[in-house]
Design a protein around this nucleic acid. Structure first.
Length: 222
DNA sequence: GACCAGGCACATC
DNA sequence: GATGTGCATGGT
């Protein structure tokens, strides 16, 4: 068990500054899953264009995505980049559900969280972050999504050991915060927003609501 | 014209 | 186990 970190206080400050982020508001589960795969190393704006194309072709459902030829799918998702690999990845996920879970997300999502995570990770093209995005945003499990922003956020505040792994960081959040899907949803989005909005544009941390939480002698100390 | 974006698989050492 | 590389579009 790690020492206690001010993660709850940081959340309060971020929420007070930025307000609710509402990631994937009112998106269907399949739309959320497709988005999670398409957004791999890709800006969300480009993903939205690809999702719009899929909608336009009425392809944003499990069976249509399963049935569509890979080349056609690649053409539809072109704006999201890496379209050939992502078309394969989408089809791999749809094949999992159609061929092993009766084509029904409800059946897949009956699995207990850690087992569901293992099943997702076994799909080619679904790694830890994508699996956790699906768990949190589509299956609504209290799982913390770790990404590049989260790692930056944690090490910037001196809250990470030398060689923290993905799973260790996720566990930090899950151990030190109440197990609350809505909280983890907002928190992850707030960290991403902080990284984009302030850390990038104002690297000196001036208007950052967390600037008084930076380590005094750290590399980012004022 | 670089550099980055809500990663992952695979090859190689 | 760690490190490097391919995958590709669109915005800044």
């Amino acid at each position: 068990m790690q020492k206690s970190l001010p993660l709850a206080q940081a959340y309060e400050k971020l929420f007070a500054q930025f307000g609710p982020q509402q990631w994937w508001p009112g998106y269907s589960r399949i739309e959320t899953i497709v988005g999670a795969i398409l957004t791999q190393n890709t800006s969300w704006k480009n993903v939205e264009k690809a999702l719009a194309n899929l909608k336009e072709h009425e392809a944003l459902n499990l069976q249509r995505l399963y049935d569509a030829p890979e080349a056609t799918l690649a053409k539809w998702i072109r704006p999201a980049g890496y379209f050939n690999v992502k078309a394969k990845r989408l089809k791999a996920f749809m094949a999992l559900v159609v061929e092993h879970y009766r084509g029904d997300l409800d059946v897949l999502f009956q699995l207990e969280t850690s087992e569901l995570r293992e099943v997702l990770l076994a799909v080619n093209g679904i790694g830890p972050e994508t699996a956790d995005c699906i768990l949190l945003y589509a299956a609504e499990r209290p799982v913390f999504v770790v990404d590049a922003y989260t790692l930056r956020f944690m090490s910037r505040h001196g809250w990470l050991g030398e060689a923290a792994t993905y799973d260790e960081v996720a566990l930090l959040f899950q151990e030190q915060l109440p197990s609350d899907t809505a909280l983890f949803n907002e928190y992850h989005a707030l960290i991403v927003n902080l990284g984009k909005d302030l850390c990038r544009k104002q690297p000196q941390c001036d208007p950052c609501p967390l600037r008084d939480m930076l380590p005094r002698n750290g590399p980012y100390a004022p």
